[in-house]
Amino acid sequence: MKKRNQYSAEFKAKVVLEVLREEATVNEIASKYGIHPVMVNRWKQEFVDRASEVFKKGPSEAEKALEKEQQHVAELERKVGQLTYEVDWLKKKSDEILNRKRP
């Protein structure tokens, strides 16, 4: 079974920009890079659909999601730190109590 190729965003952008320059046909560009023309057209369509996102002000949806995830991780790390501190304190106190009861 053939494994799917994974293309970098830079490579896709390079191919799409070449298509948009219209210096060659989609079929010629696709054969030049060894890609199916349908794939090139999909990349072009996605590029055109998402082009307006370049000019949006403020953080993108991905940046917002990343920031939210980072805040969640920081909150969990604080919680782990607090619980570790509490467990250590309880171990110390339980040792003190057990040592007092022993003769």
Rank of each mutant, 00 (worst) to 15 (best):
R102I: 12
F11N: 00
V16F: 02
D88E: 14
L90Y: 12
A62V: 13
E61V: 14
Y7S: 03
Y85T: 09
K93I: 10
K56N: 14
D95W: 02
R21D: 14
L83N: 06
E69F: 04
F11R: 02
M39N: 10
F55D: 11
K56W: 12
V15Q: 01
A51W: 09
V40H: 04
V26L: 01
R50S: 15
K12M: 08
W89K: 14
A24N: 11
Q45V: 06
V40Y: 02
E96R: 08
K68P: 02
E69S: 03
A9E: 08
T84C: 03
G34N: 00
T25Q: 02
S60A: 01
K2Y: 03
E96Y: 07
R21V: 09
K92G: 05
K91N: 13
A65L: 07
S31M: 11
V87P: 01
K44F: 02
M1Y: 03
E86M: 05
A65Y: 01
L76I: 10
S52F: 15
N5L: 12
K44N: 03
E53N: 12
V80P: 04
V73P: 00
V26E: 01
K91S: 10
S8L: 04
V80D: 08
L90D: 13
K92E: 15
K91Y: 09
D88H: 07
W89V: 13
T84E: 09
Q71V: 03
Q70V: 06
E69A: 05
S31G: 01
S60H: 01
Q70A: 04
F47N: 05
E53H: 04
S31R: 12
K93V: 10
F55W: 10
E61Q: 13
E53A: 08
E77Q: 14
A74D: 10
K56G: 04
N41Q: 10
A65C: 02
F55N: 14
E10D: 12
G34L: 00
P59I: 13
A74E: 10
R102K: 15
F47A: 05
P37H: 05
S94P: 00
K93G: 05
Q71R: 10
I97M: 08
K2P: 15
W89Q: 14
E63M: 08
Y33W: 15
E10F: 03
R50L: 12
L17G: 11
E22A: 14
S8N: 01
S8Q: 00
N41F: 05
F55H: 14
V15S: 03
K57Q: 14
N41D: 06
Q6T: 13
G81H: 03
V87E: 09
R42Q: 13
A51G: 03
L90W: 06
L20A: 02
E69M: 05
R42N: 15
L17T: 08
K79N: 08
T25R: 02
I97Y: 09
A9K: 04
V54Q: 09
V54Y: 09
K2D: 11
E77G: 05
V48A: 04
D49W: 04
Q70C: 05
T25F: 01
M1Q: 10
Y7K: 13
V19Q: 01
K56I: 06
E96A: 14
E67N: 08
K3P: 04
H36Y: 04
K56Y: 11
V73L: 13
V26Q: 02
T84W: 01
Q70W: 04
